[in-house]
Design a protein around this nucleic acid. Structure first.
Length: 804
RNA sequence: GCCCGGGUGGCGAAAUCGGUAGACGCAUGGGACUUAAAAUCCCUUGGGGGCAACCCCGUGCGGGUUCGAAUCCCGCCCCGGGUACCA
């Protein structure tokens, strides 16, 4: 195409043709390498990361587009501020999502995934993201998962990975183990089936060892500048509680250790409750109670963990016949067992304080047990001997100290967080690189033998055996022990998808290296990630695991930072016409349709305009015409500016509007209030039109400020304005604070707190001068009437309030 | 239940170190241009009252603090998300 015909196609002064403009600039970017920073020499590197998508068969949905666009806008803004921005993209393509979908449509994921990825790639390119495609990755690529397996081995060697038989959450439909995080209200997060309890040998990572550090760093703004909502969600998930372990001596001579967060209420502990599985139950049970206890334990054992956790809350339980001494009161209190006490939390035994714990109270009422209040309405301890009168929090400290002196207890800190179970008895994931040998046990596959390739299995359907389908592939299953060479068996579990995504950001800058997971020099230059934007649905899973893995690598001396994401912001959710999008409602926004109708730029601009980025917004079809009309106005402005070659005196009001706009837009970009930044740009355009101003300097800066939102459009305008380099090589405009205020300002005049009048005064008029004008003001005098002025409040530059 | 968000015109939303509520956009209604329509441009648009200058009311509800509250405090209601016998 000749230059002339391109010009013709992208639009003339008469009209703007998004399709042609967008095709032209995407081709130009690819030719020029516009989006490819020099990873080895960039002087002001800025790693702009967005959460990589799972490549579903449906393609990118509008929520993805919203998230990616918002992140891309931020990256482009940083680029205009002079950074070399690295904005990679990839695909989180392993996992149950993909596998289940493949099963459903009767295809193999190895065929399905590349197809989906191709579609995603097309969509991502179409929307105009500033992606550096040289560094695309997929977690299913052996060149990637080789290093995921390597990562497992590093944890294994460092003693951070271990195997244990554990009661795990088992989804009978997906036929796999689920992490605690994947169980929502007792149901599988994916298929909604109630989860059962099973005991299997599982691989775990010792994330609990890092709980204190994971928590502490959240409060360190030098390491982490995160959305409050996300940080809070992590704090809650970590679930730190301060309490005490206290020993109660039973009449049998057994010592029952309980965990409580409320040692201050110990004088109100009138009975004890043990989990039915508690190892001391047998010993504590008297012969008369034996039959009843055994029956109860059998009933509980027959139920799965889930129905026990989420089932009816009616309290059940049985008296053991035994008693233990409350170390504070000296009283012998009865010992019960009940299923509301869980073996996996605390010590599996509690001191029950019915007066100050709802569950204990319910239990006490049901079984007629004693209730002794030990805290009064003012929150002070009562009937607690020497501690009576103390506020509860002071009492807690004092009682812990006293228990420690008695040797009856110790203050302890506990976390709700569990170790991370990474085993999955499924097919579509990286095989865990372990070989079992009769002689040597679990032996790591030597690193030079990685990757352990996932074999091509025609039948990858999981079964009920509790063993991965990989076990059915005999050729693969038997492998020589790396130590003795005798026949061993491979680990057949694959690792959790969350392990794939726990380190992908480390891989991006180093994708071309096949001999190392991440290059030291590249990593030093580009990490930690400068800005990470993603959904809050990953606030506790992905983000916590990624932090943990980073800490482990830091402690192994492999990276020199221990928090991977300097800045994290959670984006909001997009709804359609006020309702959540869903297929059944039929209100799903298909981005492709809008993009082909309106163009990527208009679509981007609308997404960023429809609500605050961090809160989301409501997508309405009628709304998109506004941003489009706005672009048409800018188009006219640019072409007119070129035609007139307008340079000259700028009238003061326009000058002020121009500088105010630069300030407001910059602040909006920094704080991700894109909707407000766009509104400010619209105001500027309206002002320029009202004033018939086509001033080149202003129009050029307008184009630069628009560029993050509408990159193709801005490039086209920039070229028409006579530039032969990318608009993204321009610099973000500066404003003059002295020019953001008008000569004359309007001051509101209130009488008794109600705005009654407005007066115009000079910008730098002092209080006396302002008041002189106010007192001369007719309307103000009318409202004061003859009343006495008691007080005058002057807020410089804003208002005067006359109190009568 | 608990923990996070949020509640402002017909609609999406601005304004939160307390200081002129409703910027910007959509949609209305009216007008211009046109044979007509589309597009475009101009004006109107929180509710009520008044010929008018203007006045009264108004940010989920009820109180409070203040010269002044969408914004702060107390007590509620509703919506969205997360989470739950975690002792």
């Amino acid at each position: 195409m000749s230059d002339e015909s391109v010009r013709e196609a992208t639009g003339t002064e008469a009209g703007y043709n998004p399709e042609a403009v967008e095709a032209k600039w995407q081709a130009r970017w690819a030719e020029r390498g516009t989006n490819q920073p020099d990873l080895d020499r960039a002087e002001r590197p800025f790693y702009n990361l967005m959460m990589f998508p799972y490549p579903s068969a449906e393609g990118l949905h509008v929520g993805n587009m919203f998230a990616f666009t918002g992140s891309d806008v931020f990256g482009r803004f940083q680029r205009l501020r002079g950074h070399s921005v690295f904005e990679p993209i990839g695909f989180d393509a392993f996992g149950i999502h993909s596998e289940n979908f493949a099963l459903k449509v009767g295809m193999h994921p190895a065929e399905l995934i590349p197809r989906n990825i191709a579609n995603f790639r097309r969509q991502l390119a179409r929307i105009g993201g500033m992606f550096d495609w040289r560094h695309e990755l997929s977690t299913t690529d052996p060149r990637y998962y080789k290093w995921t397996q390597w990562l497992f081995l590093q944890l294994f060697k460092a003693g951070k990975a271990y195997k244990k038989a554990a009661a795990v959450n088992w989804c009978p439909t997906c036929k796999t183990v689920l992490a605690n995080e994947q169980v929502i209200a007792g149901r599988c997060e994916r298929c909604g089936t109630p989860v059962e309890q099973r005991t299997l040998e599982q691989w775990f990572f010792r994330i609990t060892e890092y709980a204190e550090r994971l928590l502490a760093n959240l409060d360190n703004p030098a390491l982490m500048d995160w959305s409050d909502t996300t940080a809070t969600a992590q704090r809650n998930w970590l679930g730190r509680s301060e309490g005490a372990e206290i020993d109660f001596a039973a009449d049998t001579g057994d010592v029952i250790r309980v965990y409580t967060t409320r040692p201050d209420t110990i004088f109100g502990a009138t009975f004890m409750v043990l989990a039915p599985e508690h190892p001391l139950v047998d010993s504590l049970t008297t012969p008369e109670q034996r039959a009843e206890i055994d029956a109860y334990r059998a009933t509980v054992a027959a139920r799965d963990l889930v129905s026990r956790k989420v089932g009816e809350r009616d309290k059940t339980g049985v008296f053991t016949g035994g008693y233990a001494r409350n170390p504070a009161t000296g009283e012998m209190i009865p010992i019960w067992i009940a299923d509301y006490v869980l073996m996996e939390y605390g010590t599996g035994a509690i001191m029950a304080v019915p007066a100050h714990d709802e569950r204990d109270l319910e239990f006490a009422h049901k079984f007629g047990l004693k209730v002794v209040p030990v805290i009064d309405d003012e929150g002070r301890l009562i009937d607690s001997r020497p501690f009576s009168g103390l506020p509860a929090d002071e009492g807690k400290t004092a009682i812990i100290r006293w228990l420690e002196e008695q040797g009856a207890g110790t203050g302890v800190v506990r976390f709700r967080l569990h170790d991370w179970c990474i085993s999955r008895q499924r097919y579509w994931g990286p095989p865990i690189p372990i070989i079992y040998c009769e002689e040597h046990g679990a032996v790591p596959v030597p690193e030079d033998q990685l990757p352990v390739l996932l074999p091509a299995l025609d039948d990858f359907r999981p079964d009920d055996s509790g063993v991965s389908p990989l076990a059915r592939h005999e050729e693969w299953y038997y492998a020589p022990c790396p130590i003795c060479g005798r026949r061993g068996r491979r680990e057949t579990d694959v690792s959790d998808t969350f392990l794939d995504s726990a380190w992908y950001f480390l891989r991006y800058p180093s994708t071309e290296f096949d001999d190392r997971p991440f290059d030291a020099e590249r990593t030093r230059r580009w990490l930690p990630v400068a800005a990470y934007i993603g959904g809050n649905e990953h606030a506790v899973l992905h983000l916590l695991y990624a932090r943990f893995i980073t800490m482990v690598l830091h402690d192994l001396g492999m990276v020199d930072f221990d928090e991977p994401f300097r800045k994290f912001r959670a984006h909001g959710l997009i709804v359609k016409d006020g309702a959540k999008m869903s297929k059944s409602r039929g209100n799903v926004v298909v981005p492709d349709e809008y993009i082909s109708k309106w163009g990527a730029d208009t679509f981007r601009l609308y997404l960023m305009f429809l609500g605050p980025f961090q809160e989301g917004g409501d997508f309405r079809d009628e709304g998109i015409s506004g941003p489009r009309r706005f672009l048409e106005k800018v188009w006219t402005l640019v072409n007119e500016s070129v035609a007139q070659d307008a340079h000259g005196e700028i009238r003061r009001p326009v000058l002020v509007k121009w500088h105010q706009t630069k300030q407001r837009v910059t602040e909006g970009m920094e704080s991700l209030h894109y909707n407000v930044a766009i509104a400010a740009l619209m105001e500027l355009v309206n002002a320029l039109r009202d004033e018939n101003c086509y001033e080149r300097r202003i129009v050029e800066e307008l184009v630069i400020m628009l560029a993050p939102f509408v990159p193709h459009f801005a490039e086209e305008c920039w070229e028409r304005l006579g530039h032969d380099t990318s608009v993204f090589d321009a610099r973000w405009p500066e404003w003059d604070p002295g020019l953001t205020v008008t000569d004359q300002i309007e001051v509101a005049v209130q009488v008794g707190g109600k705005t009654r009048s407005r007066v115009r005064v000079d910008r730098d008029a002092d209080e006396a001068a302002v008041l002189a004008v106010v007192h001369a003001d007719e309307t103000t005098r009318r409202f004061i009437g003859g009343k006495d002025i008691r007080k005058v409040i002057y807020v410089p530059g804003r208002l005067v309030n006359i109190v009568v």
